[in-house]
Amino acid sequence: MAMEKALDVLVIGGNRYVGKRLIAMLLAEGHRVTVLNRGSSPPPAGVAHLRADRDDERSLTGALGSRVFDVVVDQVCYTPRQAALARRVFTGRTRRYVMTSTVDVYEYEDSPALVREEAVDPSAVTVDLELPWGDPAFAEAHYGEGKRQAEAVLAAGGAALPYTAVRVAHVLGGDDDFTGRLAHYAERMRSGEPIAVPAVNRPATYAYVEEVAHFLAWAAGEDFTGPVNAASSGALSTEELCAAVAAHVPGGRAEFRSVEVGEVSPFSFRRSYGMDNSRAARLGFRFGEARQWLPRAVAETLGKGD
């Protein structure tokens, strides 16, 4: 869905996976795109490039100078400290702030029903800036909590910085999927090793990488605020994912091993991980059906020759 007018868009992060697709879509729609990162890898052609450490306020404000933007899309806001810094820096510099959030904000929810946005109200989340958010190990171990508190910081900013938090489901697809999660299944099938799953293994909702990028590009040009779920329709089980993977492994067959406690394979869950996408639909964006794009996504990631 193309936007009505060209926008000045700042993308923070965005050098790989969803981010690089988002940038390509924004450029294709005629928008002016600036990418801000540490400069570890060059941005794509056609964008302006700012180098800064987004965790260093002086570095960030120095790189931005007097620039203002119609929209900021923050791909790498993981903690409330980062959100607080962003709120200080971008209030008055942009009319809209889009934060990429995650299904993991719902980590304490466990219902067979698809979870709606109101299950986690950012305005009701307690923020603790004194936790060791600067410790990478702590931040990684508290990923869902970090995103939840980051949303809360933005919500507390009120009308001064209109924001939306796009709660993205587990993403699949692309030949540049760096997670290795689908490859885990393929390797188990090739070696004949069992795939560990919980004794009660819950399904989850997923999102196709191209569709997530499309949604973020679309959301940048809209004016709704607050959290919104980004997930394709139709929850998938581990068995369905493995069946799609098996099509790319000669003689591939998944053998599952049920475990009561301990580590399990990727994309197998002891609790429900399904998100309701009806708010996105009401706002004007309809996600596709996961079962329709799943074979394509797996083929892209594993390679048609596998």
Results as ranks from 00 to 15, higher is better:
56 D>W: 03
77 C>N: 04
67 R>E: 11
187 E>G: 08
280 A>R: 02
134 G>V: 05
71 V>S: 10
46 G>H: 12
290 A>H: 04
72 V>I: 15
134 G>T: 11
144 G>K: 02
254 A>D: 04
81 R>F: 02
246 A>C: 14
145 E>Y: 01
275 M>P: 01
101 S>Y: 06
255 E>K: 14
264 V>T: 15
191 S>I: 11
222 E>F: 04
126 T>W: 06
194 P>W: 03
189 M>W: 10
169 A>W: 12
183 A>L: 15
55 D>I: 00
276 D>G: 06
147 K>I: 01
138 F>L: 08
152 A>K: 00
13 G>E: 03
186 A>V: 11
131 L>H: 06
164 T>N: 11
109 E>L: 12
115 V>L: 12
97 Y>K: 01
180 G>Q: 13
236 L>F: 13
260 E>Y: 07
42 P>R: 15
4 E>P: 12
64 L>C: 13
17 Y>V: 02
7 L>V: 08
245 V>T: 05
222 E>V: 08
126 T>P: 02
208 Y>E: 15
59 S>M: 08
142 H>L: 08
281 A>T: 11
76 V>H: 02
60 L>P: 04
56 D>M: 03
16 R>H: 09
21 R>F: 02
126 T>I: 08
225 T>H: 03
108 Y>G: 11
213 A>Q: 11
291 R>D: 02
122 P>W: 04
293 W>F: 14
111 S>Q: 13
188 R>M: 12
30 G>I: 09
13 G>F: 06
262 G>S: 07
13 G>D: 06
217 A>W: 03
84 A>I: 00
175 D>M: 14
232 S>I: 00
296 R>T: 14
269 F>N: 07
1 M>W: 08
135 D>W: 13
266 P>W: 08
154 L>K: 00
212 V>H: 09
138 F>K: 05
263 E>H: 09
306 D>G: 15
7 L>A: 06
138 F>Q: 04
228 V>I: 15
67 R>P: 01
289 E>C: 04
246 A>V: 14
42 P>E: 15
203 P>I: 06
159 A>R: 05
277 N>R: 11
297 A>Y: 07
57 E>A: 12
